[in-house]
């Protein structure tokens, strides 16, 4: 029998996802699942799905799950973790969910130092509701609620969440990675692995922001989307580790993807 060299992670279910062609949610799901598998924590992991494109994540991850109200995943994560500190708890959120309606919850969850992990997928747009402007939408980027492009005079500049969270004094692991290329994905997995490890060791709150493409709502092909992310998002949303718990060195910045 030939050896299987590429299999579905144990922490993912064997179903077809509803994600659009070229969307990187599927890649990010897989990276999270591989990390859970490799740490051997699937049977004590509880995930939290947001409201947004990944609202049905509970169908794709093969572990216990909560579906949270819009933006409230970090509060739900707090409730689960405080109730059962032995669990590994992760919230999976998009940019409308986390950076707009849920900004209070993410800031205070991080500031309390809840021992949970937040996977923050930033694709610079509201995907599920049909392409409206997000707090992370790039200047000049068109969306259904800013059809001439984001006007920073009216809507301000995109929020850099990883940088914002890293200003908090409470120990945390905060990093930004991307999912637009194989090399970027490898680096994203390493960031996720560190984030989950910090939680499992009971050390600190951890959050990994992962840049993602949305060809459907960007109005681009998947290949064009990758190039657009590289050209437009990467300079504004630099990749790297922004914060580590006291005493831990930041890892070398990731190689240029």
């Amino acid at each position: 029998m030939p050896e299987a060299v590429f299999v579905r992670p144990d922490s993912l279910t064997d179903v077809q996802t509803h994600y659009c062609p070229g969307c990187t949610h599927g890649i990010i799901h897989r990276l999270v699942a591989e990390v859970i598998d490799e740490l051997g924590i699937r049977d004590r992991t509880v995930g939290i799905a947001p409201v947004g494109c990944s609202v049905l994540a509970y169908n794709y991850f093969d572990c216990d799950f909560h579906e949270a109200a819009h933006g409230r995943a970090p509060a739900v994560a707090t409730g689960i973790k405080r109730a059962r500190p032995d669990l590994a708890v992760f919230a999976y959120q998009g940019d409308g969910d986390l950076a707009s309606i849920g900004m209070a919850e993410i800031v205070h969850c991080a500031n309390r130092g809840e021992k949970v992990t937040v996977v923050f997928v930033n694709n610079a747009i509201y995907g599920m509701t049909g392409g409206q402007m997000a707090p992370t939408t790039m200047p000049g980027q068109s969306a259904t609620t800013c059809q001439m492009g984001r006007d920073v005079e009216l809507a301000g500049y995109p929020i850099r969440v990883a940088e914002l969270i890293s200003t908090l004094r409470t120990p945390a692991f905060v990093a930004r990675a991307s999912s637009h290329s194989p090399l970027a994905a490898v680096n994203a997995k390493e960031m996720l692995r560190r984030a989950f490890k910090y939680q499992v060791e009971g050390r600190c709150f951890s959050m990994v922001e992962i840049l993602s493409t949305c060809p459907t709502n960007w109005g681009l092909t998947p290949a064009e989307s990758t190039k657009w992310l590289e050209k437009t998002m990467l300079p504004y949303y630099p990749l790297g580790v922004f914060k580590t718990p006291d005493g831990d060195d930041r890892a070398p910045l990731p190689r240029k993807p």
């Binding site: 939290i48 409230r72 739900v76 689960i80 109730a83």
Partner: peptide, 9 residues
Amino acid sequence: NMLYGAAGA
């Protein structure tokens, strides 16, 4: 929403 999490657990 913290209650939602804790009760769910």
